[in-house]
Design a protein around this nucleic acid. Structure first.
Lengths: 233, 233
DNA sequence: GGTGATGATATGTATGCACATATTAAAGGG
DNA sequence: CCCTTTAATATGTGCATACATATCATCACC
């Protein structure tokens, strides 16, 4: 029995994981309360709490005050994707990142885009398109609108050397936002930039960032055909 | 100053968030050490630790022993996607979930699939295809291979009522796995089941789950055209 | 018999203390 | 002057205790 040997919260977490995995505690079962586990493992209740909270965050346990702790019936597979700066994403693949600004123009965004942003957005936006390359080959075509009401400094930025993304994370603190992943057919424009056939299946990320309720930027990122966004669960 | 009012770790977390957001502490800056913050907020160091650890998990802070805590230069946008049971995903959209098994046959998987699984996988697999519907309309076409070496009980399961996914999470505890998101062109087969044009851009999830090093199952899930997987950041 | 008050219980959190560990900076020896 | 050793320091963690909070079970009361 490895129970009494456990001292650190990681050791307890791993032991609880083991019991769940080997069905000692089956999905849906209640597990002993913190004090009993602390007694069994010979540690403080706080240490058990730390371990169980970690497992609860991971989705393996469900905890409710007074009700106790039970093994999750349908362990939520949480995939945490880290959305890096594209330049770093390319560098992490061992390729040489490149960046080329394609378009920069201020104006009023199309109606459907405004609807997607929601709220009171009647001002002028900056429209920036750019292409990220990996070892010279097209990697991501980026289509972005920046709200000049919220980030007026963007009007003076050429975005010809540094990507709007990197500039924005340094300049505009965002509080929240939404991100959506989808598959879309390459538009003629995107196909041209990505050097693929129009209509090709393109992995697409759409992201809105806000400062409070005011939208800062909305961006579509179209990845080259065949791109896979991968993570462990 | 809202500082001295803070008592709970959530209050401290929110105050630190505010300081980061308002650039009191700018990206790249070192912030005071835990003891100083505890003194300022009038609480124990452990409470500050709890708050800072939470922000570190969220990617807003970077912490290193002795080196101290600094505001992340490029706040990693971590998108945590919860991958639900498809039946629940459909129900959560307010639609009526349906399930139909299309194929069930045991055999040896194709070579490229075995390579993707890696390891010592020379046994017999069960090949199951199924369609999930939402309000009667095709939602996800699922193409799955189950390793009968690891889950021999699957050989007796018809999978005509309950999806292989739901059966597996209850039966086979997995320790780890990989998940990949991509866009793919609808094959003739997938297009037929999803009632769309062949070649249409299809959001695709590929998932491998393992028990230790032994692969349990590999599944491709092809979502109906237009599907968006969304989350907040 | 239904209902609302009451107590019991499990988790959640705060505190003060101690020690562990990683890492940097400074001191010392060749 | 470089390299090794040592000390200082910030975070990481464990423990014992106390109180807070949510929630379930029970029981008296209308």
């Amino acid at each position: 029995m490895s129970g009494p040997a456990a001292k650190t919260w990681q050791a307890i977490e791993s032991e609880v994981r083991r019991r769940i995995h080997t069905r000692v505690w089956a999905p849906g079962d209640m597990i002993p309360n913190e004090q009993d586990l602390a007694d069994e493992f010979g540690c403080a209740r706080a240490t058990v709490n730390r371990a169980l909270r970690s497992l609860s965050d991971a989705g393996l346990l469900e905890r409710r005050r007074k009700a106790g702790t039970r093994v999750a019936l349908h362990p939520v597979r949480k995939a945490t994707l880290s959305i890096p700066i594209i330049r770093k994403e390319i560098a992490a693949r061992g390729q040489k990142p490149g960046y080329r600004r394609l378009l920069r123009r201020s104006g009023v965004p199309p109606r459907d885009l405004l609807e997607r942003l929601g709220g009171d957005t009647d001002g002028i936006f900056l429209h920036v398109q750019a292409l990220h390359t990996a070892d010279g080959a097209p990697f991501v075509f980026e289509d972005r609108w920046i709200n000049l009401d919220v980030v007026p400094e963007a009007a003076e930025q050429p975005f010809d050397e540094i990507s709007a993304n990197e500039w924005l994370v340094r300049t505009a603190a965002f509080t929240d936002g939404e991100i959506a992943f989808s598959a879309s057919a390459a538009s003629d424009e995107a196909a041209d930039h990505l050097q693929c056939d129009p209509g090709a299946a393109i992995f697409t990320i759409e992201r809105i960032t806000r400062d409070g309720t005011r939208p800062i930027t909305l961006v579509w990122q179209y990845y080259r055909p065949g791109f896979r966004m991968q993570t462990t669960i």
